[in-house]
Simulated scan of single mutants.
Amino acid sequence: MTRDAAIVELADWLQTPPGRYLLDWEQQRLDAAVVDLFGFHALQLGLPELEALRANRMPHRWLAQDALGQQIAGTTVLRCDFDALPFESNSLDLIMLPHALELSRDPHQTLREVERVLRPEGRVVINGFNPASLWGLRQNLGRLTGGPRRPLFMPRTGEFIGYWRLRDWLRLLGFEVEAAQFGAYRPPLKSERWLERWSWIERIGSRWWPVLGAVYFVMATKKVHGMRLVGLAKRSKRAAAPQTAPAVATQHRQTTTHR
């Protein structure tokens, strides 16, 4: 399956009962996460079905897509490659990646581009399918036992990226994870009625097996550790300043004796 076909399949799957269930959970978490994030420039990469920036109040907000897809009224849509973003380095305050890494041609390069265009202390928010969940297990079993034409429970997106693997990628790029949350603990069911019947498990799952939700949400901050050298330089100047005082005092005493 081509990448464009995978994007279309994901958009169609999000209109199914399990897709809407995940979309609702992610939309609520994203709205709560970005409402109090301030700055000037924010960017969402892909998945226009999820309005990741609708609750944010930054004056400049863009939706970027690198393939044909749905457009949202009133939203500026950019056409660009995610592994070569058309922004200057250190220019954006917030970047949203709703399942963008799973659909990216090169998720490592996409993350490197995100790190490049984010300003120091800028934030990135990532949503992804959790392979260590009942949904991920059913998807993997379907890939092993079914043929290429047999429909899977979830869309045939790229490789699911595990939470701990993603944390390692972020750490290597100098990001510091601020918050992480898992959600959608109901079994992988296709019927809306049965999904509603299992709604009681959400509270139990978040308490007893929190890392086994069908999707995860991660917020990380770009850290530039080299900027601390400015503080070291200031302390060095303060330490060197008292050395000049004894010389001035000695010269004054010598002048007085001469008179």
Rank of each mutant, 00 (worst) to 15 (best):
L111C: 02
N127H: 10
P48T: 03
H252Q: 14
L118N: 01
L43F: 02
T250M: 15
G147T: 00
R112Y: 01
L63P: 05
G174H: 11
A239D: 03
A214H: 05
H258E: 15
R197W: 15
D168Y: 11
D4I: 15
A132F: 02
R29A: 14
G158T: 12
D24C: 06
A6C: 08
H41F: 09
A240P: 01
A184N: 05
Q139R: 08
A233F: 02
N127M: 07
P120Q: 04
L189N: 08
R253C: 10
R57Y: 14
L170S: 05
A180H: 14
L232V: 02
W13G: 15
L53H: 05
P187E: 03
M58A: 11
A32I: 04
W164Y: 11
W198P: 04
W135H: 11
R235M: 09
A220S: 01
P59E: 10
R57A: 10
L111E: 00
A6Y: 10
T244W: 00
S104E: 11
K190V: 00
E9Q: 12
V248K: 10
V215C: 03
D66S: 13
G174Q: 10
L45S: 05
R193K: 13
W62E: 05
I95R: 10
L189K: 08
V34K: 04
L68G: 11
R253I: 08
M219A: 07
L10I: 05
V77L: 03
H60Q: 10
A33D: 14
R193Y: 08
E26I: 06
P242A: 02
L47P: 02
E9L: 02
H99C: 13
W13R: 09
W209T: 15
S199D: 15
Q139M: 07
M227D: 13
E192I: 00
R235I: 01
R119E: 03
R207C: 03
Q15Y: 02
V35D: 03
G46L: 07
R79P: 01
F182T: 00
R3N: 06
A100Q: 10
G162D: 13
A64I: 02
G128C: 06
H108F: 08
T256F: 00
G142I: 01
R253P: 05
D66P: 12
V218T: 00
N140E: 06
N127Q: 09
K234Q: 12
L68C: 07
E176V: 04
G183L: 14
G46H: 06
E26F: 05
V224M: 04
R150E: 15
A180S: 15
R171I: 12
G147A: 01
T16F: 02
H41M: 07
A84P: 06
Q71C: 05
G174N: 11
T145R: 07
L30C: 06
K237T: 07
L63K: 07
D93V: 03
I126G: 01
R3E: 07
G19P: 01
E113Q: 07
P246G: 08
H99W: 15
T145P: 01
A42K: 00
E49R: 08
A249K: 04
